[in-house]
């Protein structure tokens, strides 16, 4: 199967998405923001619709809208404190409302828009792949640079501030990284399943890990296994990759629950 260019691109994209979503997933699960990916992906869907309406590359318009939405969520969180799910709900509904309105305007469901809903890792083009490489390097590099500050913030915001961590800057950084990661993952598994690739490997790793750094490593391993295994199964049995990737990750999660017992 690896002799085909589209399969090679799918695997490269899958590996990049796995590593990036794994690192971010650990942070979001520990910050109790597991549904952030859902909110941002729906906002990104609105951005894709805007792109299709104005004939702009939908990934670029989605990226712009997702970044604006991520900043919006952090601003709302700052205002209403502690109610992360409410802030995410506001952005999720607004993004979806924009998409539905535009779908009405362009009279019908565009095929491209449909592929973003359910993902299409096997039809990634060169531009998408280049964008994925740039975004992955940016996200992975930033998380590695700020990993200590992020861990301090997860522990306690006030302790972090007293030890010189600029918690506001780190919170906004995490939000923007989430927006970039969602755009990366949407191409692979689609808007409806993006939360799964972010949350499930981290949740599975947390059941069996011995430390924070071990959690990062195991999350990456589980994410890679789910993604690569899912793509292979999808090609072999001619099934939709996004569904198989998530089902593989669900199976791994269930196994880790069993192992923890």
């Amino acid at each position: 199967m690896f002799q085909y260019a589209f399969v090679q691109k799918a695997f490269i994209a899958g590996i990049l998405v796995s590593i990036t979503t794994a690192l971010l997933g650990v942070i979001l699960v520990q910050k109790k923001l597991s549904l952030l990916g859902d909110g941002l992906s729906h906002a990104a869907f609105g951005g894709m619709a805007i792109g299709l309406l104005f004939n702009i590359n939908p990934l670029l318009s989605a990226l712009t809208v997702a970044i604006i939405a991520s900043i919006g969520i952090e601003k709302i969180l700052d205002k209403i404190k502690s109610q992360g799910d409410a802030a995410i709900a506001v952005i999720l509904s607004t993004g979806m409302a924009i998409a539905i309105t535009i779908i009405g305007l362009i009279r019908g469901f565009n095929v491209n828009l449909f592929s973003f809903l359910f993902g299409s890792i096997l039809s990634i083009n060169n531009f998408d792949l280049m964008l994925l490489i740039v975004l992955s390097v940016l996200v992975i590099g930033t998380i590695l640079i700020f990993r200590k500050q992020i861990l301090f913030l997860i522990l306690n915001k006030e302790l972090a501030e007293l030890n010189g961590v600029d918690t506001k800057k780190i919170n906004y950084t995490i939000m923007i990284l989430s927006a970039l990661t969602v755009i990366l993952a949407v191409r692979a598994v689609g808007i409806l399943l993006v939360t799964g690739v972010i949350v499930m490997p981290a949740l599975a790793a947390l059941q069996i890990s011995k430390s924070f750094s071990d959690t990062y490593k195991k999350t990456i391993a589980i994410s890679l296994f789910g993604m690569v295994g899912g793509i292979m199964l999808a090609i072999l049995f001619d099934l939709p990759p996004s569904g198989i990737i998530i089902l593989t990750m669900t199976a791994i999660l269930l196994i880790t629950f069993f192992l923890k017992k």
Binding site: V29, Q30, K32, K148, L151, F152, I154, L155, N156, K157, L159, N163, L206, S209, K210, S211, F212, S213, D214, T215
Partner: peptide, 19 residues
Amino acid sequence: LDIDRSFPGTVREMLELVK
């Protein structure tokens, strides 16, 4: 602290955060 029972950090990792 702001963490729950799922927090995987070890004592060593926590102490290493402080200069």
